[in-house]
C-alpha cells in the first residue's frame, strides 16, 4: 500500500534476462579439515534480492566472506570456483590491494551485529567519510558532507548532529543504519547483507527491511541477503538458495519455494516455524530430528540423509546432483534423489 511513495528507478521486468551483477560458480572454501562451502553456484541480477537461507554451520556466512575476499588467510582459504563481478571480472586470485579497491566501492557489506561492527573510538560521520575518501578521493569537508547526506538517505533523524556521535551513543537500529550508509557510500552494484536484522527488534527489523528494499530500488544494486529466517525471506527475496552443510540443496523463486518446497530439508524448516494451530492438548511442532552433521567428517551420499524422513538406499550411496526436478518447474533446482529423473520411487 505504500509502494507508490517510493520512486522506482529500476524498472526491470525480468531480472533473469539481465547480465548478472555477480556470478558465483563451484565455490569451495575450507577451514583446515572443515569444508565450510563445498561447491556453491548462484547468480544475482541487478535489482534482484537473492536470499541464502540456512542454519548455523550451513556455510552461508562463509559464502559472503569468500565473495568479499575476507576469509582470514591464517584460518582458511577459497580453494576452488569462480567469483565473477560485472565490470571487474574474476575476483578470485586478485591481489590484496586490488581486492581492497573493489571492496566498499563495487560491493558493500552489512553485518549482523550493529553493536560491534562500528569502531567505538571514532565518530560515525568520520567512519562513513573515511570510506568515501578512500574510494572517491574527496576532500575531508566534502566527504563529511557526503556522510551527512548518506545518513539522511538511510533515515537517520538530524543527520548533521548524529554524524558527530560515537557509536555507543546510538541505538542498535541507528547503528545498523550507519552500517548501511557505509555499505552504500559508493553506490555499489552489489550489497552483501549477513543477517542484518537478526540482532534487531521486530519493529526495527521491519524498518531496516523496508530501507534495504527502498535503497535497492534507488541504486538498482543486486543484493545477497543471508538469513536463517524463512519469514524474512518471504518479505524480501525474489530468489532463494537453501544451504545445508556447505551445499545448496534447493534454489527457486521465493514464491515457488515457499508454496511448494521440494527438498525435505526445506519443507522441514518451513513446518517447524510456529504458526497458529487449533488449541487443545498435544499440540506439537513438526521437527527435523537430529542436528547438523560435523563438516570435518561428512559421511558419503546425501548430507541430509541422517535427518531425512524420506531417505532410501541410494541416498546413502551417492550424493544427489543439484538439478531441475524431474517433474515441474525447469527453472528451479533441487539436490534430492526423490526429484531426480528416473530415480523417484
Amino acid at each position: 500500500m505504500h509502494e507508490g511513495s517510493i520512486p522506482i528507478v529500476n524498472a526491470m521486468s525480468d531480472p533473469a534476462a539481465a547480465v548478472p551483477v555477480l556470478e558465483v560458480s563451484g565455490l569451495r572454501t575450507r577451514f583446515g579439515p572443515l569444508r565450510a562451502v563445498d561447491g556453491v553456484s548462484f547468480a544475482v541480477a541487478p535489482g534482484e534480492t537473492l536470499c541464502i537461507v540456512g542454519e548455523s554451520g550451513s556455510g552461508k556466512s562463509t559464502v559472503a566472506l569468500s565473495i568479499m575476499g575476507l576469509i582470514p588467510p591464517a584460518a582458511g582459504r577459497v580453494e576452488a570456483g569462480s567469483i565473477h563481478l560485472a565490470g571487474h571480472g574474476e575476483l578470485r586470485g586478485l591481489a590484496d590491494a586490488a581486492m581492497a579497491a573493489i571492496r566498499g566501492r563495487a560491493m558493500g557489506m552489512i553485518f549482523q551485529e550493529p553493536m560491534t561492527s562500528l569502531n567505538p573510538v571514532f565518530k560515525v560521520g568520520t567512519q562513513i567519510a573515511e570510506v568515501v575518501r578512500r574510494h572517491q578521493g574527496m576532500s575531508r569537508a566534502a566527504a563529511h558532507d557526503r556522510a551527512v547526506e548518506l545518513l539522511r538517505l538511510v533515515g537517520v533523524p538530524s543527520p548533521q548532529m548524529r554524524a558527530l556521535d560515537y557509536p555507543h551513543q546510538l541505538s542498535g537500529g541507528m547503528r545498523q543504519r550507519v552500517m548501511i550508509a557505509m555499505a552504500i557510500a559508493c553506490d555499489p552494484m552489489l550489497i552483501l547483507a549477513d543477517e542484518p536484522t537478526t540482532a534487531l527488534d521486530v519493529t526495527i527489523q521491519a524498518q531496516i527491511l523496508a530501507l534495504i528494499e527502498e535503497l535497492k530500488q534507488r541504486l538498482g544494486s543486486g543484493i545477497v541477503f543471508i538469513t536463517h529466517d524463512l519469514r524474512v525471506v518471504a518479505q524480501i527475496a525474489q530468489t532463494v538458495c537453501v544451504m545445508y552443510a556447505g551445499v545448496v540443496v534447493e534454489s527457486a523463486t521465493t514464491r515457488a519455494l515457499l508454496r511448494t518446497p521440494l527438498h525435505p530439508y526445506t519443507s522441514g524448516l518451513m513446518a517447524s516455524i510456529p504458526a497458529a494451530q487449533p488449541r487443545g492438548t498435544r499440540r506439537r511442532l513438526p521437527v527435523i530430528a537430529g542436528t547438523v552433521p560435523n563438516l570435518a567428517k561428512l559421511p558419503g551420499g546425501c548430507r541430509f540423509r541422517s535427518r531425512c524422513p524420506k531417505a532410501f538406499d541410494l541416498c546413502a550411496e551417492v550424493e544427489p546432483p543439484l538439478a531441475p526436478p524431474a517433474k515441474g518447474d525447469p527453472d528451479r533446482l533441487v539436490r534430492c534423489w526423490l526429484h531426480a529423473d528416473g530415480v523417484a520411487a
Binding site: 568479499m68 571492496r103 553485518f111 551485529e113 560491534t116 561492527s117 570510506v131 578512500r134 552500517m179
Partner: peptide, 26 residues
C-alpha cells in the same frame, strides 16, 4: 578479531589503515 575490523576491511580500507588507524587505537 572484532567485527569492526572485518567491517573496516569490507569497506575497502587498505590493511595498513585498518591496523594502524582502526585497530591500534583500540
Amino acid at each position: 578479531r572484532q567485527d569492526f575490523i572485518t567491517a573496516a576491511r569490507a569497506s575497502g580500507l587498505p590493511e595498513r589503515r585498518v591496523v594502524f588507524g582502526h585497530a591500534l587505537r583500540n
